[in-house]
Design a protein around this nucleic acid. Structure first.
Length: 130
DNA sequence: GCATTGACGAAGG
DNA sequence: CCCTTCGCCAATG
């Protein structure tokens, strides 16, 4: 797998174990996203808060941007902004792709917003509590 | 190396 | 309640 990482992160599709130490936050984010149960959704901010140290919500967004090229796939459709809006749908190839994936999860979307978002919200800080 | 740009979010006005 | 500002920090020009 893999070629050595030349730059900091963004080594493309490298599996977790091949990344250099100290630059693991993409993988940390991905790990958390993989833990989001089907039918539930989380937010950039909540994930950043859960991984608190040195990660901001923006960086979670960056991690999602890079998530499309990794295996196994990341259920990035389950990450929305704090209002339950599908702000990342632009990055899913087609305009409706993210919504379709959510529908497949059993999650309804209306006007680019998760229906019943408050109930479906999955917060790693409380759900993954030791 | 400085300036701008975000799949963000909180705070202030 | 809407709009702006600011913190966040890697990536890009």
């Amino acid at each position: 797998m893999a070629k050595k990482i030349k730059h900091n992160l963004f080594s493309d599709k490298l599996p977790d174990t091949t990344r250099p130490k100290g630059y693991s936050f993409f993988n940390d984010v991905w790990d958390v996203v993989r833990l989001i149960p089907k039918g539930r959704v989380s937010t950039y901010g909540a994930i950043a808060e859960y991984l608190s140290s040195r990660i901001s919500a923006r960086m979670v967004g960056w991690a999602m941007n890079a998530a499309h090229s990794v295996e196994p796939p990341i259920p990035a459709q389950r990450v929305v902004n704090r209002n339950g809006q599908l702000t990342g749908r632009i990055h899913f190839g087609t305009a409706t792709r993210m919504e379709e994936l959510l529908n497949a999860d059993g999650v309804l979307v209306e006007n680019d917003t998760i229906v019943d978002f408050k109930t479906l919200f999955w917060n790693p800080s409380t759900e993954l509590e030791e």
